[in-house]
């Protein structure tokens, strides 16, 4: 019993750390967001989201993040199914394939897409060679979606792969034996069993897409502003921490909604990446 207490004490360093570097900083965002420069309480910074340019940037970010998330599910689901059908043999390899790109800098990877997507870029040169029409994609919202899907696709594939890999093959065989066709088996068995992975994938793609400022800055030219860009500029260029924090509070509302969703659907943490 005494020993039990001593072991529990081992969590003390992390509790202190989490209080100092997770909880207090978050409270500070709320403090700055709900006060003005003189330290007086106000809702002005939060309500600033109603201003046309702020609202537009939030709206566009929501739309683009939504589109990217849907595309990621559509791309990742078949991929995860194929990968999980390989069962066991290549498990380590699969994870490596998706982790490996992270060793080449995130900014450089995104920038490489600039080179590929440009009007005179690699892809258009190839298209021209094949006598196909050119794509004008760089500096448009489509390019931003492209970048989001590219950067965050692994976050959708890994949780899906994890849940699909855990499905007992006997359950699927039983469904087939009882007369379900492959389509029915998928709809009634595989899909419901993979819901935790889908939800976890959605939060892991939606949140970074909604809040990114790098992808939009690099692939969208500097004209398309997402909410992330607005907040970043308030902090680094305008030094208006109160407004930046206020807008972050609005942003956090959306993050909290997706966190609650994932908590409801994924109680056992089955969709966890690791």
């Amino acid at each position: 019993m005494k020993n039990n207490k001593a072991v529990k004490l081992l969590s003390a360093p992390y509790i202190v750390w989490a209080a100092a570097f997770i909880i207090i900083p978050l409270l500070m965002v709320f403090y700055y967001g709900l006060t003005n420069r003189d330290g007086q309480f106000t809702f002005a910074n939060v309500l600033a989201i109603q201003q046309t340019e702020h609202f537009k940037s939030l709206y566009l970010a929501l739309i683009l993040a939504l589109i990217s998330t849907v595309i990621c599910i559509l791309l990742a689901y078949p991929l995860a199914m194929i990968l999980s059908s390989l069962k066991g043999k290549n498990e380590h390899l699969v994870v490596f394939i998706f982790i490996l790109p992270m060793w080449m800098n995130f900014l450089l990877r995104t920038m490489a897409w600039q080179t590929l997507l440009e009007n005179d870029g690699v892809i258009n040169t190839v298209l021209q060679f094949l006598h196909m029409p050119k794509m004008h994609i760089i500096n448009t919202p489509s390019a931003i979606v492209f970048g989001m899907v590219y950067n965050f696709l692994p976050f959708m594939v890994l949780p899906l792969y994890n849940v699909l890999n855990k499905i007992d093959i006997n359950v699927i065989n039983a469904a087939r034996d009882l007369g379900a066709n492959p389509f029915q088996t998928f709809i009634r068995i595989t899909l419901p069993l993979s819901v935790p992975g889908i939800i976890s994938g959605i939060t892991m793609v939606f949140v970074p897409s909604l809040t990114t400022f790098v992808v939009s800055e690099m692939l969208g030219g500097s004209k398309i502003l997402l909410i992330g860009n607005v907040i970043e500029q308030e902090f680094t260029q305008n030094s208006n921490w109160n407004l930046g924090s206020g807008l972050s509070i609005v942003l956090m509302l959306f993050i909290i909604i997706s966190m609650i969703m994932s908590a409801i659907f994924d109680k056992n943490g089955e969709g966890n990446t690791l």
């Binding site: 700055y32 809040t211 400022f213 930046g244 993050i255």
Partner: peptide
């Protein structure tokens, strides 16, 4: 893990 990186970043900056 779930919070946006930009929010984590600015919260630490404010701290």
């Amino acid at each position: 893990m779930l919070n946006a990186e930009i929010v984590t970043g600015i919260s630490l900056m404010l701290l």
